[in-house]
Simulated scan of single mutants.
Amino acid sequence: MADKRNIFLIGPMGAGKSTIGRQLAKSLHLEFFDSDAEIERRTGADISWVFELEGEAGFRDREEKVINELTENTGIVLATGGGSIISKENRNRLSARGVVVYLKTTIDKQVARTERDKRRPLIAEAENPREVLEQLSEERTPLYEEIADITIETDDQSAKIVANEIIEKLGL
Rank of each mutant, 00 (worst) to 15 (best):
D3M: 09
K4T: 07
R5A: 06
L9P: 04
L9R: 14
L9S: 09
I10T: 07
G11M: 11
P12Q: 06
M13Y: 00
M13W: 10
G14K: 03
G14Y: 01
K17A: 04
S18V: 11
I20L: 13
G21T: 04
Q23N: 08
Q23C: 01
L24Q: 12
L28R: 08
L28S: 01
L30G: 08
L30R: 00
E31G: 02
E31P: 00
E31M: 13
F33V: 02
S35L: 10
S35H: 07
D36H: 15
E38T: 15
E38M: 13
E38F: 08
E38Q: 12
T43C: 12
T43W: 03
G44D: 00
A45W: 06
D46N: 14
I47Q: 00
S48P: 09
S48R: 09
S48L: 01
W49I: 12
V50H: 02
F51G: 00
E52N: 15
E52R: 15
L53E: 04
E56K: 01
G58R: 04
G58A: 05
G58C: 13
G58Q: 08
R60M: 04
R60T: 05
D61K: 13
E64L: 02
E64P: 03
V66E: 02
I67H: 01
N68C: 06
E69R: 10
L70G: 08
L70D: 03
T74D: 06
G75S: 01
G75C: 03
L78S: 04
L78P: 03
L78H: 06
A79K: 05
G81Y: 14
G81F: 13
G81L: 14
G81P: 08
G82K: 09
G82A: 05
S84A: 08
I85C: 03
I86V: 06
S87K: 05
K88G: 01
R91H: 14
L94M: 12
S95E: 14
S95K: 13
R97K: 08
R97S: 15
G98Q: 06
V100F: 09
V100A: 09
V101Q: 06
Y102Q: 07
Y102V: 00
L103N: 12
L103S: 00
T106Y: 15
I107C: 06
D108N: 14
K109H: 08
K109T: 15
V111K: 07
V111S: 07
A112N: 03
A112C: 12
T114C: 14
T114Q: 13
E115L: 15
E115F: 14
K118D: 11
P121S: 00
L122S: 08
I123E: 05
I123W: 02
A126C: 11
A126P: 00
N128Q: 13
N128P: 10
P129H: 00
R130F: 12
E131D: 00
V132M: 10
L133Y: 07
L133G: 00
E134P: 04
Q135G: 03
Q135T: 09
L136Q: 08
S137R: 02
S137D: 09
E139G: 07
E139F: 14
Y144G: 00
E145S: 08
E146A: 15
A148R: 07
A148I: 11
D149M: 04
I152T: 03
A159W: 12
A159E: 09
A159Q: 05
K160Y: 11
I161F: 15
I161G: 07
V162W: 03
V162F: 10
V162K: 06
V162R: 11
V162G: 05
E165Q: 11
I166K: 12
E168V: 04
K169S: 01
L170D: 05
G171Q: 15
G171W: 01
L172D: 05
